[in-house]
Nucleic acid binder design. Structure first.
Lengths: 177, 177
DNA sequence: GGATTATGTCAGTACTATTGACGTAATTTC
DNA sequence: GAAATTACGTCAATAGTACTGACATAATCC
């Protein structure tokens, strides 16, 4: 049963190359880079009994405090049912709180607690460290060019999601200084 | 039950920023970029009843024809049991064939069939297109700097895995020069 | 001949995701 | 003010990918 069955095709022994103009080098690098990028927080999350889904929710609630459940679903591109369990756990463990929407009382605005803020920072720290090291290592003086490239990799119609963040800080009691 | 329970922490209403030198911008961009990067092949895979795991196996078997099961496990960083089902399906559907190792007959060398090669190319095509578009869009003349950055994001001790490939091509019709 | 190695497989479990259906409360619409 | 819609929550069933642990087989090494 080791050898191929009679009907099976013959083995191709040559490696797939950048034939046809396919950029295998970057495809593969992207895979490895993301794999290791997510491995850092995964280790921390394990201590809490959380998974990657918790991280993503925690991240976006910290980035856009007060976003509603519907907005969160839109950013994560998952279904309500998938979010439900994860969000419930984060609320039960006091990392996130829900506040009734001011205008529309059907809405639940999501905010991090101090505990949730701390965890989000703890998870982001090794990732940020890795990024900084990579920028230095690779001698990429232009951090901006990496940002531009990554942004250009995102579906154009979804780029709006990215640009929501910066504005958030301002408005009320503005974070810095 | 909408409002927070008595014991819950108070909501933090300010967005997390690049305080503490945390690079949230790139962290988030990396998430969005990878999400959309994988969405292209996901659609194609669905037609075959395959998932992302099949894609990864197919990719590496095409990139390093003749690799053994153990080598594949090492690259993917998953367990034998996780690979088993996926690999079996790819063999049953005639995308991959096993050949007994020439030196060590315990080993199973994995090769793509013509069918498996074709699918790997079909999956890579939209990804490569996206990368090319992103490099143009972002005006990143230096494709090399993106490559260097991504490589630097990979755990140093695992970078060896990346460099296995290029050698494969040479010998015969070597790509560059 | 005994230990180790490479692979395969069985059983059980966990996490993340899916679709479909239904319920409740609040808002909007006519 | 009744009806439709919206925002959210939840129950049930299923799928894909991963895990640990255990065990079997065949081949190689010593």
């Amino acid at each position: 049963m080791t050898d191929r069955s009679p009907a099976a095709g013959k083995p191709i022994r040559t490696a797939i190359t950048d034939e046809d103009g396919i950029d295998f080098a970057i495809i593969e690098l992207f895979f490895f880079a993301y794999r290791d990028f997510t491995s850092d927080p995964d280790q921390i999350l394990a201590d809490y009994g959380f998974g990657r889904a918790h991280h993503r929710v925690l991240h976006f609630v910290n980035r856009r405090p007060g976003l509603t459940v519907a907005e969160l679903l839109d950013v994560l591109k998952i279904t309500k049912q998938s979010l439900a369990r994860v969000l419930k756990q984060l609320i039960d463990t006091d990392h996130i709180v829900q506040v009734q929407g001011p205008r529309d009382r059907r809405q639940r605005e999501l905010y991090p607690t101090a505990k949730g803020r701390a965890l989000a920072l703890a998870l982001a720290r090794p990732q940020s460290r890795r990024i900084r090291a990579a920028l230095e290592d690779s001698g990429t003086a232009e951090r901006a060019s990496i940002e531009r490239f990554l942004e250009a990799m995102v579906n154009p119609e979804l780029r709006a999601q990215i640009n929501i963040v910066p504005a958030q800080t301002s408005g009320k009691k503005n974070g810095d200084h």
